[in-house]
Nucleic acid binder design. Structure first.
Lengths: 166, 166
DNA sequence: CTGCGGTCGAGGACATGTCAACCTCCGTGA
DNA sequence: TCACGGAGGTTGACATGTCCTCGACCGCAG
């Protein structure tokens, strides 16, 4: 490794501010969801994706990708959601290896009950705080990051990583 | 709860893009540190704070605050870092309840060994990707978020939350 | 000086996430 | 048709984080 390109003071401050802001935002989201809905944000995401899918059902691997989750994580998560009665698993008709996760009526009802509180929290943590220009800029920045990091050669530790699916 | 102020399409996209980008950035950071340094980013932060403190030592509670950690989390973390030999705990001279965490020589050496890789990853995940204007904007946005969410009425679940300390 | 509320830090129980097998099954090529 | 590489999904061991409780101790009010 040749000479390190250290961060200068300005970059240092920017990076730490970014770290702090993300932590503050996500802590809020996480905490509110945990308290009011009894589930972590990752699980909420899963319910949302299912609710948007045709038939409120989706193939496990596709669900993993769309919820930005590893397969293994999704498997554990769905197991838990199944215990809670919000999701049901059934075999995939096309592919006997596969499984399909399906939102139950209770799951949908629960999601509809908790969504308003979550949205309000998101507004309070972000949309009510930033100016319209800041929001536009942040959207642009986020898109740029996603575009540049998405396919990312991050040594997918095992293959067990978001594959590029769909 | 009165009528929910739902997110419109644009806001929805912005929020999801933000979520995705943060996940991509932090996954990289986390993965690189775990692989090359054998520790999660939160632990790295602790080592950094200690290395910047006078005498490479800091009171536990102050360290918790400065590393944006709960006391309990810090306690577990320092226990682990102590096992690895990178940090040492000693009683606080002023306050017999207290404890002081101190970076060991090995800890400092380890930190110095792994810092370049981390910095390079941060550059690759952020500074090399965004334009100077984007970076300025992101810094400004982060500061705004921190300023507005820091004291945050987030029902500190138990008192066990970053207190506003020092 | 004594009692009392509050702070400091530790630790246990539990939830979530990661990694690494491990099966089952698919699709292809010989 | 059958072997084989790879995909889909699950599972168990383990690491990390959260919540809650506890014991020790501080500092103040009486």
């Amino acid at each position: 490794m040749p000479d390190t390109r250290w961060l200068d003071d300005e970059e240092q401050r920017a990076w730490r501010s970014y770290l702090t802001s993300c932590r503050l935002v996500f802590d809020r989201i996480e905490r509110q969801l945990q308290q009011d809905a009894g589930l972590p944000h990752a699980y909420y995401e899963i319910l949302v994706r299912l609710s948007e899918a045709p038939g409120h059902a989706m193939r496990m691997s596709k669900l993993a990708t769309s919820a930005m989750s590893s397969r293994s994580r999704l498997s554990h998560a769905v197991a838990r959601l199944e215990e809670s009665g919000w999701v049901r698993r059934r075999p995939c008709p096309d592919d006997r290896r596969g499984a399909v996760a399906e939102l139950t009526d209770e799951g949908l009802a629960h999601l509809e009950a908790i969504a308003p509180g979550h949205v309000e929290t998101v507004r309070g943590a972000m949309f009510d705080v930033l100016s319209p220009e800041q929001l536009r800029a942040l959207h642009d920045i986020s898109d740029t990051l996603v575009a540049n990091l998405a396919d990312a050669p991050v040594w997918p530790a095992s293959e067990d990583r978001y594959d590029d699916a769909e």
